[in-house]
């Protein structure tokens, strides 16, 4: 009961801060940032496997959310709304980066070995970071954060079947990797 009330109070505080932020209060928005940044950064670190890119994308997501905060109607939790913006931001950045690399005729990021994230990570985190980019995106969104195949397919602009194939491939690679490290 105590925990429930605490969660409700937290949500009320968040709603107050959202309203204040929507009116231009940057201090309120900073409180929202402090609360939610570990979740967004974790998502980004797993999606990008690159600390610098995860930091840049995190800043980008919170700037985008600030610009759109007027449109938050409270129909869903603020964290869910922010997460959706964050996913769109990181996928947009990754698409831009891929286009840029293709334009410059550099290596295909799909086949490029990802740089393991530079933090104290478990074997699983390291294995996720080592997945091919598209397989990693699908696995993180569907396998870690619970998005449906339909949602992931739409976000990545791929067929649902392709999404399922990537997830299967990613799980296979991760399972083998984990077995090899134990």
């Amino acid at each position: 009961m105590l925990l429930t009330m605490s969660a409700e109070r937290q949500e009320d505080t968040a709603q107050d801060d959202v309203a204040l932020a929507a009116s231009g209060d940057t201090r309120a928005y900073e409180r929202l940032y402090r609360t939610h940044v570990p979740h967004i950064y974790a998502l980004y670190l797993r999606m990008t496997a690159n600390r610098a890119e995860a930091e840049d994308a995190t800043q980008d997501a919170f700037v985008q959310a600030w610009r759109k905060i007027d449109s938050f109607r409270g129909d869903s939790r603020f964290s869910s709304w922010l997460h959706r913006i964050a996913v769109n931001v990181v996928l947009g950045r990754m698409r831009s980066r891929k286009r840029e690399m293709e334009r410059m005729r550099l290596v295909d990021p799909e086949t490029q070995t990802a740089t393991p994230a530079e933090h104290d990570i478990s074997d699983l985190e390291r294995a996720i970071a080592g997945l091919p980019e598209r397989a990693r995106q699908v696995f993180v969104l569907a396998g870690v954060y619970g998005y449906t195949h339909e949602q992931v397919a739409e976000a990545l602009d791929v067929a649902v079947g392709t999404c399922k194939a990537h997830l299967h491939r990613a799980r296979q690679m991760l399972a083998e990797q984990l077995e090899a490290t134990t």
Binding site: E30, Y33, R34, V37, P38, H39, Y41, A42, L45, R51, A54, E55, T58, Q59, F62, E118, H119, S122, L124, E125, V144
Partner: peptide, 13 residues
């Protein structure tokens, strides 16, 4: 066991 919270190494605010 994956942690859904990872703090950035620097303050991004």
């Amino acid at each position: 066991k994956l942690d859904d919270r990872i703090e950035p190494q620097r303050d991004l605010w």
